[in-house]
């Protein structure tokens, strides 16, 4: 593609070049720094991450076998679950006390493993609801159209641009429930972009997407990096991780066991053990 693409990748690669491949390695410019995050359900410790930093402007993959606590960690960081203890900072602000909507407003927007399209609303409505700090969403202003009509038109224009980019523009008036699984994933991503996030957290973006759409989804994720966004995503598919991730963090049994570039990770015995161990367990069930 163009030179821009190379610029984004190059910047991310350069920033991560000297970082040692060990868990909790410090980054040049971390947008997210978490320390001592622990979440226990009853006696079971689901997440116990000592330290992690996420490089700004890079695509970081979070991988690990089933039950490693990746989604729970995601939920904690985005305020959808409360940690037993731990603290983290996002973009220089303390984020562990924030509620989920405050986290989203501060610029860290997530998507879900099982897509959460608002089924009985149109695609365009789905997009418009994503726009942040709308005046017309305040109860006192809602009945007075002239207060928010202009803002609504601007949001609609932006929404249509995004839908165009995600090839959903011709579906704008369809109910979101009518879309295919892959289209819903695209819609969810497009909707998240309506918030103009600094960092986007994708929970298994490829799950349930047919192979034809996969490639275009990958391109979309790469584009996000070129626009200066930070991406953190959970994924199982190592091929995909190899193709787009600049950096990989590996979780197993709730802990961060290692970090590194995709090449370093594929060669790491601990990762292979973690996966194989998990597969052994799964086979016995």
């Amino acid at each position: 593609m163009s030179d821009d693409v190379k610029a984004g990748v190059a910047a991310a690669k350069a920033a991560l070049a000297g970082v040692p491949a060990e868990p909790g390695a410090p980054k040049q410019d971390a947008i997210l720094t978490a320390t001592g995050v622990r979440r226990a359900f009853g006696g079971l410790v689901a997440v116990d991450v000592a330290h992690i930093e996420v490089q700004r402007g890079a695509i970081t993959a979070l991988i690990g076998p089933n039950g490693a606590g990746k989604t729970t960690f995601f939920n904690l960081l985005t305020g959808f679950d409360r940690p037993s203890r731990g603290s983290w900072e996002f973009d220089g602000r303390r984020a562990d006390r924030m509620r989920s909507y405050q986290v989203a407003r501060s610029g860290m927007v997530r998507t879900f493993q099982l897509t959460k399209a608002l089924s009985r609303m149109t695609v365009l409505e789905n997009m418009l609801i994503g726009a942040d700090r709308q005046r017309g969403e305040r109860l006192w202003a809602a009945p007075f159209r002239w207060l928010w009509l202009k803002e609504e038109a601007q949001n609609a224009a932006r929404a249509l641009d995004l839908l165009e980019r995600f090839k959903l523009a011709d579906k704008r008036d369809h109910y979101a429930g009518e879309l295919s699984g892959g289209q819903r994933k695209l819609l969810e991503m497009a909707r998240a972009l309506m918030l103009k996030p600094k960092m986007i957290m994708l929970d298994e973006p490829m799950a349930g997407v047919n192979p034809a759409l996969k490639q275009s989804l990958l391109e979309h994720i790469k584009d996000l990096r070129e626009e200066g966004m930070t991406v953190l995503f959970v994924e199982h598919d190592m091929d995909m991780v190899h193709e787009i991730a600049d950096w990989v963090a590996v979780m197993a049994a709730g802990q961060l066991i290692t970090e590194g570039t995709p090449d370093q990770i594929s060669a790491d015995q601990r990762v292979i053990d973690a996966y194989l161990g998990a597969h052994h367990d799964a086979a016995q069930h």
């Binding site: 359900f41 009853g42 989604t71 729970t72 995601f74 939920n75 959808f80 679950d81």
Partner: peptide
């Protein structure tokens, strides 16, 4: 509930 377990979210 007094005997139930806290539900896991997400």
């Amino acid at each position: 509930g007094i005997l139930g377990r806290r539900e896991r979210i997400g």
